[in-house]
Amino acid sequence: MKEMLRLVLVLTLIAAGAGLILSLVEGATRAPIAEQRRQETLRALSAVLPPTDNSPDEDTVSLITGKDRRGRTLTRTFFRGRQAGELSGVAFTVVAPDGYSGNIAIMVGIDPQGTVVGVEILNHAETPGLGDKITQPWFKQMFKGRSLKNADWRVKKDGGEFDQITGATISPRAVVGAIHDGLEFYKAHRDELLVPAGGDQP
């Protein structure tokens, strides 16, 4: 019995010590981690939006896009860039669920009329050397100036006009499809996004 108590006591003390250290480290790194994530969003925003003089990450609107399989509502956040108070561009994240390996998260920036200004790949797990070429500048540049009206949103192999990558058609197809869906969503909800500054706070 005494031996049993000792086992419990030692293990409890070790776990308590570990918990204490972890809470200290978590507290010390929380602010830098939040800042890193914010910087990443800002980098992506400045890459895909036309020039702005506001902070797009503080001028956002969230819209409900649907429900997931467990019935939780899914929202999409729209970042609004302004110049001299006028809306100059909108950026939002789309997720392509049909990549070669896992989801591809893409930040899309458009002007108020719905023409793509820039796209940025935020997250992906595509094959290095093949599918990961979607992160290269020439691939991202293809979308610039395209809109629902002036482009056929399919890769060339499927009869559209976007170049696929040699040896990797699935990744570009997923990216093109996801951006297309994002543009459709914007077109359908444009009026809700053009409400005055303020919107919701992140």
Partner: peptide, 23 residues
Amino acid sequence: VRIPSFIVIIASFVTVVQLCMEA
């Protein structure tokens, strides 16, 4: 209880590394 103790110790340091690396 040495194996559970070792795992708790190792897991704590791994979490420290993970947090510091992300920061």
